[in-house]
C-alpha cells in the first residue's frame, strides 16, 4: 500500500487481463501501426463530428479489451476514463453506452496512467474484482477546442506537437495471466511559468522529473531496476529537457532506456514537429506496443510516466501559465 510520501506498492499486484488500442489514419501510417487492434482510414470514422468519432474509438477500445479477455461488460465493476474534450464528454458518453459503474477522471494527457493507477488500487484493495480503464483523444477535436480549426492555415513552431487520434483501454483483474501492476506514484502539479501552448513538452518536463524523483525516493530503487522508462508525450524537445534535468538532479537514466511515447508512435518522416501528444499518445503506445512487448517477454520491468498539461482554452487566453502533472505506473511481466 502506501509507501513513502506519494507512492502505492500493490500487495497482490493486479493483472492486466487484456488491453486494446485503436487509432486513426495518421497513426495507421505511423511506426507502431502493427500494435493497434483497430485502425480507421478516415478522421470522421463514419460519424458526423470529430467528437462522435472520438467516442466511437473509446467504445471500440473498451469492447475490444473485453472481447480479448473473454469477459462481458456486466462482469466489470468499475469503468475509469478521462479525455481532453470539455467536461470529458467522450468518456461519459462512452460510459453511457457501456453502462458500467463509472468514475470520470481528468488529468489531461496523464489520464491514462491516473486511470491505470486508480483501477489497480481498486482491484488490489478489494474494492473491485474487475476494473476497466481507458482514455482517448482526437486530433481534430483537440485542435478545434484548444487551438484553431483544423483547416486553418496557421504555421506551427518546431516545438508544437501532434495530438494522437486514438483510444486505449486496459482490463485490470485480481488474478489471471498478464503483466502485473506493481506500483504507482501520484504526481504533484508543477508549474514552471511556461505559458506557450505550442511548447507543452517544455512545460511538462519538470513534472515528469518531479514524479520520477518521487518514485525512486519512495520505493528506494534506482533507475537500473527498469528495462525501460517511458514518458507520456514530452516530444523531442521536452524529452531532451527531462533527460538533462534528471542528470542535473543526480538521477541519471541511460539514454537507451529512456524513451517517449510521443517519439515512438510516428515515423521520422511524418510532419509532427516535436512528436505526438494527447491522452491517446501514452494510452495507445502503452496498452498496444509496450504491453505487447511485455507479453512477448522482450521487457521485464516497465515504468510509464504519463505527463499532462492542465491548461484550458480559457486559461491561456487569460495569459495564465500552464500547470503540469505526471503519474507513474510500474508494470512487470
Amino acid at each position: 500500500m502506501l509507501q513513502g510520501h506519494q507512492s502505492w506498492v500493490f500487495k497482490t499486484p493486479p493483472a492486466v487481463l487484456s488491453s486494446a488500442a485503436v487509432g486513426g489514419p495518421f497513426e495507421a501510417r505511423g511506426a507502431l501501426a502493427e500494435d493497434f487492434d483497430l485502425l480507421h482510414d478516415d478522421l470522421y470514422m463514419g460519424e458526423s463530428s470529430f467528437e462522435k468519432a472520438e467516442r466511437k474509438m473509446l467504445e471500440e477500445a473498451c469492447s475490444k479489451a473485453l472481447e480479448k479477455a473473454g469477459r462481458k461488460k456486466e462482469e466489470v465493476n468499475f469503468f475509469l476514463s478521462g479525455d481532453l474534450i470539455n467536461q470529458i464528454i467522450s468518456s461519459s458518453f462512452a460510459a453511457r453506452t457501456l453502462s458500467i459503474p463509472y468514475l470520470g477522471i481528468f488529468a489531461a494527457c496523464s489520464s491514462s496512467m491516473e486511470g491505470l493507477a486508480l483501477a489497480s488500487l481498486l482491484v488490489d484493495s478489494g474494492a473491485a474484482q474487475l476494473a476497466l480503464t481507458a482514455t482517448s483523444s482526437h486530433n481534430g477535436a483537440v485542435e478545434k477546442q484548444f487551438r484553431y480549426p483544423t483547416e486553418y492555415g496557421a504555421q506551427k513552431p518546431p516545438t508544437a506537437q501532434w495530438t494522437v487520434t486514438g483510444a486505449g483501454a486496459a482490463l485490470i483483474g485480481r488474478e489471471g495471466a498478464g503483466p502485473k501492476i506493481t506500483a504507482a506514484t501520484i504526481g504533484r502539479v508543477v508549474d514552471m511559468g511556461i505559458s506557450d501552448p505550442y511548447n507543452l513538452g517544455t512545460a511538462m518536463a519538470p513534472a515528469a522529473v518531479d514524479t520520477l524523483q518521487a518514485h525512486f525516493r519512495d520505493l528506494g530503487f534506482d533507475p537500473s531496476r527498469y528495462d525501460l522508462i517511458v514518458t507520456g508525450d514530452l516530444g523531442r524537445v521536452g524529452h531532451q529537457i527531462a533527460y538533462d534535468l534528471l542528470i542535473k538532479k543526480g538521477l541519471e537514466i541511460p539514454a537507451d532506456k529512456f524513451v517517449d511515447c510521443g517519439l515512438l508512435i510516428y515515423r521520422e518522416e511524418q510532419p509532427v514537429m516535436a512528436g505526438g501528444s494527447g491522452c491517446a499518445c501514452s494510452a495507445t503506445v502503452t496498452y498496444g506496443h509496450l504491453f505487447n512487448r511485455l507479453r512477448r517477454g522482450e521487457l521485464q520491468r516497465l515504468l510509464v510516466v504519463a505527463t499532462g498539461a492542465l491548461l484550458s482554452p480559457l486559461s491561456y487566453q487569460q495569459k495564465e501559465s500552464i500547470p503540469c502533472i505526471a503519474h507513474a505506473v510500474a508494470i512487470e511481466s
Binding site: 518546431p158 514552471m192 511559468g193 511556461i194 505559458s195 517544455t202 519538470p206 529537457i241 534535468l245 495569459k319
Partner: peptide
C-alpha cells in the same frame, strides 16, 4: 515574453526557463 511577466516568475522558474531555452529549437526566422 514581456518584462512584466518575467518579474513575476520565481527564481526557480527563471532558472528552469533559461535551462529549457538552450534546448528548444528556435523558429527558423
Amino acid at each position: 515574453m514581456s518584462k512584466g511577466k518575467k518579474k513575476k516568475l520565481t527564481p526557480v522558474q527563471r532558472e528552469y526557463q533559461a535551462f529549457a531555452a538552450q534546448r528548444e529549437p528556435r523558429r527558423p526566422l
